[in-house]
Every structure is written in C-alpha cells, then in structure tokens.
Nucleic acid binder design. Structure first.
Lengths: 136, 136
DNA sequence: TTGCATGCAAACCATTTGCAAACTT
DNA sequence: AAGTTTGCAAATGGTTTGCATGCAA
C-alpha cells in the first residue's frame, strides 16, 4: 500500500513523520487526479484538518526528492503531483481536460536509448480523447 | 529554411507580419538552446531592437498556436520554446543543465498508441549525461 | 533536548491584462 | 480605413522565503 511505503521511505531518508505529511500521503494514496498543490491544500482543509500552504509545498518537495511521488508539468499554469511512479504516459484531452494514464511498454525503449543515466521522466501527449471525438 | 516557413505559416493563418514577429522567428531559426521568453527578450534587446515583454509573450503564443514552434515544460520555473517540431525527446542533464535533443523513431509508437487524436507532445527525460558521468 | 517541521504573511517572479498609440494590409 | 498588434505599467497568481513557534525523535 502506497501510504506505508511512502512513510517508510520518508523514515529511511531521515524525515520525520508529521501529521501534515501523513495527510498528504493519505490524500495521494490511489489518487489518479494529478492534483495541484492548491487542490491538495483545499481538499485537506475541507476535512477539518489544519494545514498551511507552505507546508503543502514543502511536503510535496520532500516527497518528490525522496522519489515517492512525481511532479508532472502537463499544466503550464501549475505543477501537478502523481503518486504513480511507474512507467506511464499522460494523455491530456484538450477538450474535456481529462488526463488519462497510459501504462505502456513502449516507454522503456526510449529511456534505454538515452545518452546517460536516467533518474526520472515526464511524457505528456496532448490531443482529443476517443470519448470526445465520438461526441462531436 | 525555418524563417520562411514560419512567416508563410503566419500569413496563411491570417496573422500580420510585423517587425517583432520577424525578430523572434529569426532568433529561433536554428536555435537549439530552448530559450525562455526572458532570454528571447533580453537577446533581442541586446541587438538594438526595441521590443516589449508583452509582445514576446504574445508572439510566442501565436507561434505555438500556429504550430510553428513548441512550448516545452522541461523547466518548472518557466516555459521554454523550441523551433524544432519534429519527433524528439529532451534529455536534461541535472548536473550540467544541458538539454540534449534526441531524435528517435521510438517516439512514434507511443504517439500511435494513444486513445485519441494526438495534436502535440513533450517528452522530458531527466538524468546525468555521459559527459558528466565520465568526469566524476 | 535538539533540530527539523509548521504556519503565517510578506516577498518574489513569471506571465497576463487593459488600453491608447502605431502599424499592416 | 479597419482591425491587428505593440508597448507600457499595473495586476495576477503560483510558489518561495524568513522567522518565531511547535513537535518528532
């Protein structure tokens, strides 16, 4: 389970386990919405928990540095965060704005062809999804 | 030549050919540095040309909309722009900060496997380049 | 007890906007 | 002449920072 792995990874890297960090990890567990920092902040606040903006940013930074989550740049306005660190592509439908995760074995060959050691990646494809094409 | 193609494409899309647009297109012609809007602004100003910040942004937007250049998000701080719209991957060396363009036929299979119509993409791989590995 | 982490508000900085003047067609 | 485009400066909005207080270890 993501939460347990994340908490363990934080511990291993010498980070303290605090309430805000637990909340954010819980929030991201199984989350496929690629939320922004603001969305995370708002949603956590809605559930009677007190958290500050700076802490959301700090914690997300920490989780990214510890390789527990990925920062994705599909939205040029603001960073989004993804707890799924497995090889996948983000397909953004520009009509309905949905981000579809595509787990594909076609990603690996690209990573293997890089002229150096790979530490992370972000594959963003923009277009129009089948569901929107059918509607038009 | 990129400049001629870009100007023609602007005309075809009903955009007027103005000095600032020419300067920016010339600046980007053959440019492999993936510059930011600020870098473009500064460099154009350095060569005795008067241009405003808003115009740089407006023009880059226009060029992106007309599919003449790509906006790339390799830098979470600010957008970068690439006149090379052919299928390639951006490999960012986190040590020397260089962005290496990798033209690869491995990109196409990914685009073809998307659940919809593809209009654009941005493939970013982060790591350490061979040259930096050798130095350490 | 010892630092690391949090929270607040102010600062920062890339990008956008409104509008009058200038220019392309 | 008509309608875009430019340029300026101010506004916006996501993200970061400094520092005092709080908390995990």
């Amino acid at each position: 389970m993501f939460k347990d792995i994340a908490i363990a990874a934080l511990r291993e890297n010498g980070y303290k386990i605090t309430k805000p960090r637990e909340w954010i990890v819980e929030y991201l567990d199984g989350n496929k919405n690629h939320p922004t920092a603001l969305e995370i902040f708002d949603d956590i606040r809605k559930s009677d928990k007190s958290i500050s903006f700076a802490t959301v940013y700090n914690t997300l930074d920490t989780l990214v540095k510890a390789n527990i989550i990925n920062e994705i740049t599909i939205d040029s306005q603001s960073s989004r965060y993804d707890p799924d660190t497995s090889n996948h592509v983000h397909f953004l439908c520009e009509k309905c704005k949905k981000v579809i995760d595509i787990h594909s074995d076609k990603v690996k060959p690209i990573l293997e062809s890089m002229p150096g050691k790979v530490s992370g990646f972000d594959i963003i494809v923009r277009g129009e999804c089948d569901s929107c094409i059918k509607k038009s």
